[in-house]
């Protein structure tokens, strides 16, 4: 067992080394991606700013606080993108028969999916940290040890919520060969609905974002704790829900991982 652990660890280090070499091999492509990432988040923040300049506040949230909401989402989301991004390749791996290779190697298949060398680099995570530093200044976040603990838990838990949803979608490709559409639908739902306070949405959307695709635990609930917000207009909830993000992340990941194991057993390959 110790041996298996050592092999996983050294393979993972090798994976990051290969990522770096790939990045050097395709520098231009990397800088285009980097520029795109900056523009993408810049546009999203610009849209929030335009929206918020029309209204002084949104259900009691000022533009600085909505900016903070986005920054908090970015932390969990980009942490997921840095370490778990290649889960989105599972449908291609299955369709092209490359998944077979992962089953004949002495490593966990999910681990191997997540350590497929590519152009992965924590650049987006760095951008998220910069945005967050600006955002916490804008809302004059009061730092204490519990703030730090909550932020770390929300970021880790948030990444796992994000990953769990992607893992479930990826697992479906063991039954339905082509499902990239679903992935994009869920990703844009996530992007669009996490930008504003949950309380502005109607009940159905709130239930969906809290319990079905629990993206609200990535930023909204932790933000209400950090910004000392309690009962919002037309929406009541326990103000301590923000501490539950890691629990929600763990539960969703556990469910998603069981589903993944089930899918692995059903795997039939692409043909004879």
């Amino acid at each position: 067992m110790a041996d298996a652990g050592a092999r996983h660890w050294s393979a993972y280090r090798e994976f990051w080394r290969l990522n770096f070499l790939t990045l050097m091999e395709y520098k231009v492509n990397f800088f285009i991606w980097l520029a795109f990432t900056i523009v993408y988040h810049g546009v999203a923040l610009g849209a929030i700013w335009i929206m918020m300049s029309r209204f002084p506040s949104m259900n009691g949230w000022h533009w600085q606080q909505v900016f903070f909401l986005y920054a908090l989402y970015m932390l969990g989301h980009t942490l997921n993108n840095t370490f778990f991004f290649t889960i989105g390749e599972v449908p291609d791996l299955v369709r092209e028969g490359r998944f077979d290779r992962l089953l004949v190697r002495p490593l966990d298949p999910l681990f191997q999916v997540l350590s497929q060398p590519g152009q992965i680099w924590p650049d987006e995570l760095v951008i998220a940290l910069i945005v967050f530093i600006l955002a916490q200044g804008a809302v004059h976040l009061q730092w204490s040890s519990s703030t730090v603990v909550l932020l770390v838990l929300a970021t880790l838990g948030g990444a796992y919520i994000d990953f769990a949803i992607q893992l479930i979608i990826a697992t479906l490709s063991f039954w339905v060969v082509r499902l990239d559409a679903l992935r994009w639908v869920v990703m844009s739902l996530e992007n669009d609905f996490t930008r504003y306070p949950l309380s502005i949405y109607n009940r159905a959307v709130r239930i969906m974002l809290a319990y079905v695709f629990p993206f609200a635990f990535m930023n909204y609930f932790p933000a209400t704790v950090l910004l000392h917000k309690s009962a919002e207009v037309g929406y009541t909830f326990n103000p301590q829900l923000g501490w539950l993000t890691p629990v929600v992340g763990a539960v969703w990941f556990a469910a998603a991982y069981s589903f993944w194991r089930l899918g692995l057993n059903k795997y039939q390959g692409t043909g004879s």
């Binding site: 041996d3 050592a6 092999r7 050294s10 393979a11 280090r13 090798e14 994976f15 290969l18 070499l21 790939t22 091999e25 395709y26 190697r105 002495p106 490593l107 060398p117």
Partner: peptide, 18 residues
């Protein structure tokens, strides 16, 4: 591994198989 020199694939396999 398509994007990198052949020897890099060997190094990855060395790690995978210990």
């Amino acid at each position: 591994y398509w994007d990198l020199p052949l020897v890099e694939s060997f190094r990855l396999l060395k790690a995978i198989y210990g």
